[in-house]
Write a protein that binds this DNA or RNA. Structure first.
Lengths: 203, 203
DNA sequence: CTCGCTCCCTAGCGAGCGTTAGTCAGTGGG
DNA sequence: CCCACTGACTAACGCTCGCTAGGGAGCGAG
């Protein structure tokens, strides 16, 4: 949440941090998209004029790049932590899906921006970010492939299954509400179960 | 594909139809997003100047609205045709998923635009389009709910499952290639099978 | 007290946007 | 043959965009 000054009145003067700028950008980019958001809108919410934003950031593009890079790094870190403890494809796929789904429920704005606006990044950032996503997808795919090899999973094509699992999780960011009937953890558990069903793991 | 004049040379004069404008908009909106696309880019591809576009359309917004409305209408028509012949939830869910997935493979550009840029529509079109999507989602959900009631499906929550099934299908538009290893029909069949697995239908 | 730093402000630049108005060349039908 | 229509053009509009320059108020440290 943007931390503005507590003073009010005619000569109230907002005091803004770079975290507040990033947070507001997060909200607006998620709502209207990167190209659909003007810096003036970010500034207005923070209670300052547009040029003052430049005390806290270098450019609009840098804002987007920061958001995307941080998010993808977290996703990869989540994944590696999730699969670390075991070699069992069942546990690995369940855990990898669970943390991925959980992140999309708890960090909805970041997820929406990454999925909608990554392509608006300039090169070379675009290629770097695409590579991070591919890395994650390939890792999931190889977990499924090992499960197929060992006869634990029964699915025609590991690639198709990995796409389906990843993208159904991404969608959580679109509909999940914190004040809804289910907690983020409950939803993540359900989706982890869906993932195992897709690869037809029968306990 | 844009149908331009066959003449070439220094004084070649492009001749453009409104279908060609829509088609080019489809390609660019899908590639760069609605806000990320300028009319000048559409005009350049068609080989005309920007103002000439107005001989074939009313506004940029109208282009987007046409794309979204047509696509969602086709999705709903697909669905109703798919479930018409039977009351069996298994067949209905498989067919509904199959035609939805198939459309996302064969009409990738439309699907990408609907999913990314629907929120850029002005009211009241936005509400109308959201309602069409909800209608579709609710219809899928009720198929699943009937399957649960009859004991054919075993899944905790029909809503969660319907979201997962719909959104994994949407993702096809992101990776499918016509010249890839699988045909659109094959992919659609696989995803229809995934849908039944998610609701744990055991043949 | 005062110096220097932080961070806001106003003013303004240059570019690009979607859109309108008005013009003119080519084409097909009477 | 000519006239109306189609569909391109140039010119220009008002607006918004991201961003820069330069100035000044408030605050903490010495």
């Amino acid at each position: 949440m943007p931390s503005t000054d507590t003073r009010t009145g005619p000569d109230a003067r907002a005091v803004v941090t770079s975290e507040a700028v990033l947070d507001t950008a997060l909200t607006l980019f998620a709502q209207r998209g990167y190209h659909g958001t003007a810096l003036s809108q970010i500034a207005e919410i923070l209670g300052i004029r547009t040029p003052s934003l430049y005390n806290h950031m270098r450019s609009k593009q840098e804002l987007l790049e920061t958001i995307v890079r941080q998010t993808l790094d977290h996703v990869l870190a989540d994944f590696h932590a999730a699969v670390k403890g075991t070699d069992d494809p069942v546990v690995q796929l369940r855990e990898a899906t669970r943390v991925y789904a959980l992140r999309h429920a708890t960090h909805r704005r970041e997820a929406l921006i990454v999925n909608r606006d990554t392509t608006s990044l300039p090169e070379p950032a675009l290629t770097a970010m695409r590579q991070r996503r591919r890395e994650h997808e390939r890792a999931i795919r190889s977990v499924i492939a090992r499960g197929i090899e060992s006869g634990t999973f029964a699915v025609g094509n590991a690639g198709l299954a990995s796409f389906a699992i990843l993208e159904m999780s991404v969608s959580i960011a679109r509909w999940f509400r914190e004040d809804g009937p289910r907690t983020a953890e409950q939803v993540a558990d359900e989706y982890a179960e869906f993932a195992l069903r897709i690869v037809r793991y029968r306990p």
